[in-house]
C-alpha cells in the first residue's frame, strides 16, 4: 500500500461516520479515509438528521463532520455526541471553512477532537484522523499521558 497509509494493527476494522452534504466533498473525505484506513468501514450521510439516527443505533470509532450542514449544525451533532453516554469519548473531527475563528473556538469548547479546514488537504485529514484514533486508544488504555495538542501538523 502507499506510504501514507498509516494504519496500524490496532486501527483495523474501525467504523467511520462521514457527515457532509456535498457529494463531491463527501467523496474526497471518503476516499481519504479509504486511503488512510483501507480496511475501515465508512458510513456516509448527507445530513445531520440521518447522522444522529445512525449514531443512536450503532457505535462508531471516528466522526468526520462538516460544520455547515443544511439541517442540523455540526455543533449540535457534536454536543449530542458529547452528551450521550456511549459516544462521549469518540474522536470527532470538524471540517470547516477557515472563515470564522469563533466557530472553531465554540467547537473546541464543546469538546471537538480536532479540526480540518477546507480546502481539505488529504494528508492532513488522514494524519489528524489517525492521531485522533491513536489518542483515543491511548486514553481508553488509561494512559496518563496527556493527549497531543491539536495544532495542525
Amino acid at each position: 500500500m502507499k506510504d501514507y497509509c498509516v494504519e496500524g494493527e490496532d486501527l483495523k476494522e474501525i467504523k467511520i461516520l462521514i457527515v457532509e452534504d456535498m457529494n463531491f466533498t463527501r467523496n474526497i473525505i471518503g476516499h481519504c479515509m479509504k486511503l488512510g484506513f483501507p480496511s475501515s468501514r465508512r458510513i456516509s450521510t448527507a445530513d445531520g438528521r440521518t447522522a444522529l439516527e445512525r449514531l443512536r443505533n450503532e457505535a462508531f470509532d471516528l466522526i468526520l463532520c462538516d460544520w455547515g450542514l443544511p439541517d442540523i449544525s455540526g455543533l449540535e451533532i457534536l454536543r449530542w455526541v458529547r452528551e450521550s453516554s456511549r459516544d462521549r469519548e469518540i474522536p470527532f473531527i470538524m471540517i470547516t471553512v477557515i472563515d470564522n475563528k469563533e466557530i472553531i473556538m465554540e467547537a473546541i469548547q464543546a469538546g471537538v477532537t480536532d479540526y480540518v479546514i477546507k480546502p481539505i488537504d488529504s494528508e492532513i485529514l488522514i494524519i489528524k484522523a489517525w492521531r485522533a484514533l491513536k489518542n483515543r486508544r491511548k486514553s481508553t488504555a488509561d494512559s496518563p499521558e496527556a493527549a497531543e495538542p491539536i495544532l495542525p501538523v
Binding site: 456535498m22 463531491f24 455547515g68 471553512v97 477546507k118 480546502p119
Partner: peptide, 9 residues
C-alpha cells in the same frame, strides 16, 4: 459556500 470549498479543493 459549498461550491467555494469544492473549487478550492
Amino acid at each position: 459556500h459549498s461550491i467555494k470549498g469544492a473549487a478550492g479543493n
